[in-house]
Design a protein around this nucleic acid. Structure first.
Length: 220
DNA sequence: TACCAGGAGAAAA
DNA sequence: TTTTCTCATGGT
């Protein structure tokens, strides 16, 4: 994977799809919530769960933490894994509350904040980086299933490449530019949704990437 | 019916 | 240390 290739990818996908303006949320707290709910789950199902929270007037830190875990689980049920996600979400929200809320965390340096997020139960590297990039505007790249699949098909990285390796390569190539890293990840997801899943449409793909390998879960 | 989705942690090997 | 299993709803 070379820097000019990655910059070219941003250019081509940007020309094909236009600006993405991610993350699809109304506030940093909604980014935090959505980052947990979208773990291994279609975004459409996350939206159903977010809708339930909104209708229950539970999109604020205090109201969410006031909910019993079982009740929270029922509200987020459409996003799947609802028992696990209710616990993870409460762990994350407690972390936010204990450190003074979203605005207070915004004052943290990126690396300490990343380490602290990773120490929260249920927050792995992808979820932490979603939060860093889309809630706090930090220059980190999010490596997700779409990214692994596309980079694999472009033969830029083998399927076993580690999360930090891929993240580092992209960040080194594009520099510490949150706006560009934001756009690239959003464009990769858009590409995946339009041309890879649920049904491959390689004939229309602006990257001319062909789905050669079976459509199995890539990496982990 | 079977498979899959913008992961992460626990358990098993 | 690495691999496998588990969690779960909703769409195709």
């Amino acid at each position: 994977m070379e820097a000019p290739q990655i910059r070219d990818l941003v250019q081509r996908l940007g020309a094909a799809f236009g600006p993405m303006r991610w993350w699809p949320a109304e506030s940093p707290l909604e980014v935090v919530i959505g980052a947990v709910l979208t773990q291994n789950t279609r975004w459409e199902n996350v939206e159903r769960a977010m809708g339930n929270l909104r209708r229950a007037d539970c999109l604020a830190l205090e109201s969410l933490l006031a909910l019993p875990e079982a009740d929270l689980g029922q509200l987020i049920r459409p996003s799947g894994y609802y028992n696990i996600k209710a616990r993870r979400l409460r762990s994350l929200l407690r972390f936010v509350a204990e450190h003074g809320g979203i605005d207070a965390l915004a004052d943290w340096e990126t690396e300490p904040l990343r380490e602290a997020l990773l120490a929260v139960h249920g927050i792995g590297p992808e979820t932490a980086d979603d939060i860093l990039l889309y809630a706090f505007g930090r220059p980190v790249f999010v490596v997700d299933a779409y990214t692994r699949r596309l980079f694999g098909r472009l033969q830029w990285a083998d399927a076993k490449a580690g999360y930090e390796s891929l993240r580092g390569q992209v960040e080194n190539a594009l520099g510490a530019d949150a706006a560009v890293l934001n756009e690239l990840h959003a464009l990769i997801v858009e590409h995946g949704k339009r041309y890879c899943r649920p049904r491959p449409r390689c004939e229309d793909c602006p990257l001319a990437v062909v789905c050669t390998e079976p459509l199995r879960r890539a990496g982990g």
